[in-house]
């Protein structure tokens, strides 16, 4: 087993040659007295899909939320360490969190469109970020965002209907379109398909595949098969630590670590 400078056991196929979008070093997170993450060192590669897997409570969602400072809203949550986005410390005092979250968008487990029209769902973000100058701008953003999220053809004739009236899979794609609308660089997805049926899941997975051309994607998933299907790199979390990080192809055929093996093959771990 070769050990990269980060100290995380790496697969034989090194992934260090790729460009790092996010660099996390020594990240510790505490909820009150309880430590949830222990010294997380990981490089999230640009224009790749990185999946974070691990049993419930392993810290994968906590880490995902560190990447756009969603944990800031939790009072008892304390962050230590360093996360760089394109080399810039996102926890530095001069960082505008609202701007950061525009660069690093998020899609949640349960589709959560605003109780507004499909159109309004898309333009809300660009509007508050001052990206819209007139009706034609707005129309264009709505069309491009929905097209990129693969939803345009299904909703183009009913843009003024409420977003909540769509099916679960469509709502999730609407949320992805909403995230894309502000032109982010990274999209974080927290179990984006766990509330969807297999067809809607397949459509989202196809979408993720297309989106990685333009965005860096980090996805938390409980489905091993989904992680294997959609991601290029996989990090296995256990009890707040990264146990193994490497190329997805290797993690799912020949993991280096016994704990990873036990987890992904469904053994008592």
């Amino acid at each position: 087993m070769s050990v990269q400078k980060t100290g995380v056991p790496m697969s034989e196929k090194q992934i260090s040659s790729q460009v790092g979008k996010f660099t996390s070093r020594g990240v510790d997170v505490y909820y009150g007295d309880k430590q949830a993450l222990f010294g997380i060192d990981i490089d999230i590669m640009e224009n790749k899909v990185t999946s974070l897997i691990g049993p419930s409570g392993c810290g994968k969602s906590t880490f995902l939320r560190c990447l756009n400072r969603m944990n800031d809203v939790i009072d008892i949550c304390r962050f230590e360490g360093e996360i760089l986005l394109d080399g810039q410390d996102i926890y530095a005092s001069e960082i505008d969190v609202v701007e950061l979250r525009a660069r690093v968008g998020m899609v949640f487990q349960k589709p959560n469109p605003f109780p507004k029209s499909i159109y309004e769902n898309i333009v809300y973000g660009p509007r508050i970020h001052g990206m819209i100058d007139g009706r034609s701008d707005a129309d264009e953003i709505v069309e491009t965002s929905l097209k990129r999220a693969g939803l345009w053809n299904e909703v183009k004739d009913r843009l003024n209907e409420p977003g909540t009236g769509l099916s679960g899979g469509q709502q999730q794609r609407l949320c992805i379109a909403r995230a894309i609308a502000v032109n982010p660089e990274v999209i974080l997805m927290d179990e984006p398909c766990s509330a969807l049926d297999p067809i809607a899941t397949a459509i989202i997975e196809e979408l993720i595949d297309e989106l990685k051309e333009n965005f860096t994607i980090v996805i938390v998933t409980h489905s091993m098969q989904q992680a294997a299907r959609v991601s290029q790199n996989t990090a296995f979390f256990h009890l707040g630590k990264i146990i193994e990080f490497g190329e997805t192809d290797q993690i799912f055929t020949n993991p280096r670590n016994q704990q990873t093996q036990d987890y992904i093959t469904g053994r008592y771990g």
Partner: peptide, 8 residues
């Protein structure tokens, strides 16, 4: 859908 050692 076996994985890793099981798949092999």
């Amino acid at each position: 859908q076996p994985m890793a050692l099981d798949l092999r």
